[in-house]
């Protein structure tokens, strides 16, 4: 470096791996403007509009009977769908991560399938299957069972759209961890269940929680699929997102945003938990793979 330049210039000059300061500034500006118009402003708008008619209006919009019933149904649907998918995912991850069998990667693709199905189509398949014009619909009607345009349909649609969330976190995690610890436990005389509860479950707990939190966010926020199967019966088959739609279409924007702010708050809590858990999962993976 015999350029004759003062040392400070050399030290602050752009290295081989970075851009001149003005370009850095422009790129940061472009990125932040993009995120501002698509993420930050929409998010801010939800909370500002929610309180546009004051705190009193906000509270009354949330405590109104239809809003409470919608909240109850949302909690019910998520309360059934999330545990069901959680149990399924643990079973699926156990069979896929711990054993070898033909068609394994095909099975993994099939588990991911609901992600590539439009929510509207997800709702539609149940309406067609269990609705009155369907084969099963006739039988259900004869036995006085109402699945579609009722709570069971909403639960089913929610199970479908949240199907892969937990499994796609657990399968790679359990594959990376291997099964040596389980084998050790069995050798020492533990039963299969003991091995699962005391060895496997503690090893996957953060990954499991991560998947469950994402699954729950989607379950509580699902709109398209639930909209198709709900039949829009107010106070009976309305979830919180559907309640938002009704209020908004009635030009009751402040109330719509008040309910929406509740869901947006849930999304923020989800993101915060996700950030913390991502760090935990990484740490746990490092710990359990470094043992071997």
């Amino acid at each position: 470096m015999s350029t004759g330049l003062p040392l400070t210039v050399i030290l602050t000059a752009p290295s081989a791996r970075t851009e001149p300061w003005w370009l850095r500034l422009i790129l940061i500006g472009v990125a932040l403007t993009f995120l501002l118009s698509f993420i930050f402003l929409p998010l801010a708008l939800v909370f500002i509009q929610a309180f546009s008619k004051g705190v009193g209006y906000y509270v009354s919009a949330l405590s109104e009977p239809n809003a409470l019933l919608a909240a109850k149904l949302t909690l019910t649907a998520a309360g059934i769908a999330v545990p069901l998918n959680m149990v399924f995912s643990v079973a699926a991850a156990w069979s896929i991560a711990k054993f070898d069998f033909p068609g394994k990667s095909f099975l993994t693709t099939l588990i991911d399938l609901p992600f590539s199905v439009s929510p509207v189509v997800a709702g539609l398949i149940y309406v067609l299957l269990f609705g009155l014009q369907g084969w099963i619909g006739e039988w259900l009607k004869a036995h006085d069972i109402q699945l579609v345009f009722a709570v069971p349909g909403i639960v089913l649609a929610t199970v479908f759209v949240t199907f892969p969330f937990v499994a796609r976190e657990l399968i790679p995690l359990m594959q990376a961890q291997g099964s040596e610890e389980e084998e050790a436990a069995l050798v020492l005389g533990a039963t299969g269940w003991q091995t699962f509860w005391h060895v496997t479950l503690p090893n996957i707990r953060w990954g499991l929680l991560y998947g469950v939190i994402l699954c729950n966010a989607r379950a509580m926020g699902e709109f398209g699929a639930v909209s198709v199967v709900s039949g829009h019966i107010r106070g009976l088959t309305n979830t919180l997102p559907l309640h938002v739609e009704i209020l908004y279409n009635e030009y009751n924007s402040a109330a719509a945003f008040a309910v929406a702010s509740l869901l947006a708050f849930l999304a923020l809590v989800t993101l915060a938990a996700k950030s913390v858990l991502e760090w935990r999962v990484k740490a746990q993976l490092k710990e359990s793979t470094s043992v071997h």
């Binding site: 932040l32 995120l35 993420i39 930050f40 402003l41 929409p42 998010l43 708008l45 939800v46 509009q49 929510p119 994402l214 966010a217 509580m220 926020g221 699902e222 709109f223 398209g224 919180l240 997102p241 559907l242 938002v244 739609e245 908004y248 924007s253 719509a256 945003f257 929406a260 869901l263 947006a264 999304a267 923020l268 989800t270 993101l271 915060a272 996700k274 950030s275």
Partner: peptide, 26 residues
């Protein structure tokens, strides 16, 4: 930066109906 990084995932977490009315108003 950390906060902005975390918020990039908002479209995954925000219910679509909420995004819909917010974008529509914006």
């Amino acid at each position: 930066k950390k906060l902005i990084d975390a918020l990039v995932d908002l479209p995954f977490a925000l219910p679509t109906a909420v995004a819909g009315i917010a974008l529509s108003s914006l």
